[in-house]
């Protein structure tokens, strides 16, 4: 059974159909690429999948512990609680907070105390905070950001900010990650490092990843399967080789032959 199943998904903005009748499925443990020319509806699709937009039509189904959960009616934070997290095309870190606090916020669900526990500093508060602190630091060590734990997010170099954003999404406990252009604005070395990072975390933590990317070297090297969107429609899917030679994809990117 596939982990994520998208059935006939449509999102209209007025008369514009940004995503129309898209059906895809993602298997557990897969690393899938989502490509397409500018304005093809890739980010809109992500926004629908993560609850930022409610779909006009169609369903988003997630398999969780053998049960099927319908994501398309949930607000974003509940979708995150189902084990689905994302990053953003333009980095959205909590800039004024430290790397550690960025991760702690993603782990906020682990706090085992309510408002009274916080105000009166119950025993649970101290236990819970200590546990979160340990867990966040261990997590940072796993993603090789532990040395930067106390640095403010805005003071990180660009590549590290991207890395932190991915790490923060993982820290929510997500099993399925949506990465929106993780390599945008990176130079070839940084892209290479990021490619390694994504491949590594995926193997180590058993993640399923869907990523949007324009950097074809990244997409072709790590994605096992690729979906191609154009004008909101799914025009092709398959392995890197298949997609590369698909005439419709070439047409979408380069235009029709005269």
């Amino acid at each position: 059974m596939s982990l994520l199943k998208v059935e006939h998904l449509t999102k209209n903005f007025g008369g514009l159909s940004a995503v129309s009748n898209v059906s895809i499925s993602v298997e557990e443990g897969e690393l899938v690429g989502l490509i397409g020319p500018n304005g093809a509806g890739k980010t809109t699709l992500f926004n629908v999948l993560t609850g930022v937009y409610t779909p006009t039509e169609g369903k988003v189904l997630l398999t969780k512990d053998g049960k099927t959960v319908e994501l398309n009616k949930m607000p974003p934070y509940k979708i995150t609680h189902q084990g689905v997290a994302r990053t953003f095309q333009n980095i959205r870190l909590f800039k004024e907070l430290s790397v550690l606090d960025n991760v702690k916020i993603a782990m906020n669900n682990e706090a085992r105390y309510g408002i009274l526990g916080a105000l009166f500093r119950s025993v649970n508060f101290y236990k819970s905070e200590a546990a979160i602190d340990v867990k966040a630091r261990q997590f940072l060590a796993k993603v090789h950001l532990d040395e930067l734990a106390d640095v403010k997010a805005k003071n990180l170099p660009y590549g590290k900010q991207r890395q932190l954003e991915i790490a923060r999404a993982m820290a929510t406990g997500a099993k399925l990650l949506f990465l929106d252009e993780p390599a945008a604005g990176m130079n070839p070395q940084e892209t290479h490092a990021l490619t390694d990072f994504i491949a590594k975390i995926r193997n180590e933590m058993n993640l399923t990843i869907v990523l949007i990317e324009h950097d074809m070297s990244l997409v072709m090297s790590i994605c096992e399967r690729i979906f191609v969107l154009d004008y909101g429609k799914l025009i092709a899917q398959g392995s890197a080789q298949e997609v590369k030679n698909n005439p419709r994809v070439i047409e979408a990117y380069l235009g029709e032959e005269e």
Partner: peptide
């Protein structure tokens, strides 16, 4: 937006 995406109500 990021806050909501991190599972914060």
């Amino acid at each position: 937006i990021a806050s909501e995406a991190m599972g914060i109500n």
